[in-house]
Nucleic acid binder design. Structure first.
Lengths: 210, 210
DNA sequence: CCCGAGACTAGGCAGTGTCTAGAAAGTAGT
DNA sequence: ACTACTTTCTAGACACTGCCTAGTCTCGGG
């Protein structure tokens, strides 16, 4: 039998993948470099070649988390947009916009429910600035949100000058609702309803304030 | 010299106080039962009499955090209310209400900036339900928020039937803005401004939606 | 072909949380 | 004041962790 090669060949990816599973199933405290190494069938020092320390692993996880969340939100928003297109010209642009935002927010909440520990990690307080790759991935997510909100200007929901603040506000609200749900303060379906309320309020308030 | 008594006399309180300081200055990872014991001048097993395990210490910290945050918000709201009273009858009730909400939200954000790691702990994802005392303390905070929002009904800002949802939404937004700030996504003063926008939008939206 | 760089092994260190047995101090009840 | 009981704390041990170091293997480019 061809005994295991010296080089794992793909350790970094294997570690990250397994780490995500552990995070999901047993939480951050249960995440140990040594255990990951054992499960990957390498010695306890091997991960060091890919991550200088445990923090680097966590940073990489956070980065991947942001990228995945961004992707899921993009797809959810995309699906909502094509549904709107399918409804053809009968629909009202502002209504479609609200639906798209809700789809995006919903995707965020869904991610939070599926990966609560990961989300915690992504938004955990760092004593110092988060490392550049994490920052970039988080920025990408914010960029996506920004893009979605830009569409509201075209739909006439609010002036372009408000987009920046409204985007931040939406992000904060979605983030807050998710925190409420993942910390077991309110059930998931109530969180979903809250998102609807929040978006409705955001849009009607923005229109009224204009 | 009266050599240290066998009984510390007040170990539990000493541990909690010191733990809060460590959390504030060096973060959750730096929080070690053994180190706390050393600093308190007791053996490494002593804390076990007061906290069955590390998790219990963290739960106690979270509980105290909720109680303190609740207290600070109460006081801030109280000060805002008495300022409103001092302005006498010249003021508009809705305006006063907005100011009170902003004062409360501001206190929350201030707490988040001063105690980011503690806030993380309070809202950290638990695999299982948070223990009863923590739940109760969190409920107390939510009760305070609810009370503040109730005042809006009297001021005619929104119907009583909306208070529940609006309270949750405000809580989520404030929590989300704080998360944005403590995770270094936006600076503190921008967070402050966001709170103002959020409250204004909440109130104008609630009025428009009525 | 070799040789340098990166991936990995293996051992050791300090530190941790948790568990145990038992000593010391406080608290009653008589 | 003596005794029994409970709580608080000590002291030692165990398994585990992250991190460090020295050395070994493997691969790819000169």
């Amino acid at each position: 039998m061809p005994h295991r090669p010296f080089h794992h060949g793909n350790l970094r990816a294997a570690l990250l993948e397994r780490a995500e599973a552990v995070l999901r199933e047993r939480g951050l405290d249960a995440l140990s470099l040594r255990e990951l190494a054992r499960e990957a069938g390498v010695s306890h020092g091997a991960p060091r070649s890919h991550f200088p320390d445990r923090g680097a692993l966590l940073d990489a996880l956070a980065e991947r988390g942001f990228l995945r969340l961004d992707e899921e939100i993009r797809q959810a928003a995309g699906r909502a947009a094509s549904r709107a297109a399918a409804r053809a010209a009968t629909g009202d642009a502002q209504d479609d916009h609200a639906r798209t935002l809700h789809a995006a927010a919903s995707a965020y909440l869904g991610f939070a429910v599926r990966e609560p520990a990961l989300l915690d990690l992504m938004f955990a307080t760092k004593t110092d600035e988060p490392p550049e790759p994490v920052r970039a991935a988080a920025g990408r997510l914010f960029g996506t949100m920004s893009g979605l909100m830009d569409a509201g200007v075209a739909a006439g929901a609010y002036p372009a000058s408000d987009v920046g603040r409204l985007t931040l506000l939406l992000s904060a609200t979605v983030q807050g609702v998710s925190a409420l749900v993942t910390s077991r303060r309110i059930p998931a379906d109530q969180g979903e309803a809250l998102l609807g309320d929040g978006i409705a309020l955001l849009l009607s308030g923005a229109a009224a304030g204009r």
